[in-house]
Amino acid sequence: MNYFSSDFKLGILGGGQLGKMLLYNTRKFDIQTYVLDPSNEAPSRMACNTFVQGDLMDYDTVYNFGKQVDVLTIEIENVNVNALETLEEEGIKVFPSAKTLKQIQNKATQKLFYQDHNLPTAPFSRYAYLSEIEDAISNDALSFPFVWKAAQFGYDGNGVKIVRQLSDLNDLPKGECIAEQLVPFKNELAVIVARSSNGETKTYPVVEMEFHPEANQVEYVICPARVSPEVAQKAQDVALKTSKAYNHVGLLAVELFLTEDDTILINEVAPRPHNSGHQTIEASYTSQFEQHIRAILGLPLGSTDNTVAGVMVNLVGAEGHTGQVKYQNIETIMAMNGVTPHIYGKQQTRPFRKMGHVTITNKDLNTARQIAEEVKSSIKVISI
């Protein structure tokens, strides 16, 4: 099939910032794109050929959208999988597949998948209702502390909470969830695996993630991770084994815990471009977004090597600010060497909403990390 400057149509379910950054590359290759998103102000709207506003969880909406394209992909997991199954039966190529998405969408199902495939992960228990956790605590079947995770619809730190006492369960959603053993880790790592529709596989260098203590969001992504070659190899081996088990096509971001004794445990995965790979736009030969396009179209995968060290800083809405967005001091950070801001195009800010990111590149990783600290302390995402 001729993908370039032709009648070929690529569909993307979700029109957020990940979709927008995917579209940078489809425009570069002159690939026709269709985007479906519930918001009329989706960041991707400005960059696609055809934009459709609609509910990603509605069967008919997703099915009718998918019938318009030749290949369908996602930038968010929360989509109607039943519609994707029907589209696959009717000959539409869907990457990642409906089967892969179904295994990943639900965190309880995801954790059981790790168990079934001998993939290392923290011990956990599955509960149909929050009240069952309370019963387990009262019956001494579950002890504090543990990590509560909503089985579905969690994102950007939402749907996860460390529970240290009974009152921490107050106001949590009442539905299906898991209680995961609190892992005493020293580092959070991630590996992005690219796997093409023809079976070619490549991994990006291991990255290190630093999280905001309150919002449970990534503040910094550091590449390459500051770990030994032995630990990096362990992380890549686990990620490759996970990728093989899922048999996915596209990208699979594998988030990992590194424990005090250098054991690697899987936290969770995402079958799409991921926050832990944003620095690849400036710091790698092939960005994660271009790689995803190459993978789902069965094209040769690009080099995943770094050209320089890269650090990514997330730009999130400042606490106490809701409304029309303003990026305060952006000129200050743009005057710094090796600093590239990416503004996602969301008009309204609110506390901890992802509004953009900044990549810092440098030949020296420590220098890049220092500049990242300056960037973080300089720019503020506030409301007018």
Rank of each mutant, 00 (worst) to 15 (best):
S5L: 12
S6F: 09
L13H: 01
G15T: 01
K20F: 01
L23D: 00
Y34N: 03
Y34V: 03
P38R: 02
E41D: 14
S44M: 02
R45W: 04
M46D: 11
G54E: 08
E77T: 02
N80K: 10
V81Q: 02
G91P: 07
P96A: 12
K107G: 01
K111R: 06
P123S: 05
F124Y: 08
A136F: 02
D140L: 07
F144Y: 15
A150G: 05
A151I: 01
K161Q: 08
C177N: 02
Q181Y: 04
L189A: 03
V191S: 03
A194I: 03
S197V: 12
S197P: 05
G199Y: 07
V206M: 09
V207Q: 04
F211R: 03
E214I: 14
N216F: 11
V221L: 08
A232W: 08
S243I: 07
L252I: 12
E255M: 09
E255N: 06
T259I: 14
E290G: 08
G302W: 11
G302T: 13
S303N: 14
V308H: 14
T322D: 10
K326M: 13
Q328S: 11
Q328M: 10
N337K: 12
H342Y: 15
K346I: 01
T359P: 04
K363G: 11
L365S: 14
T367N: 13
E373K: 15
V375Y: 09
K376L: 14
K376Q: 13
K376I: 11
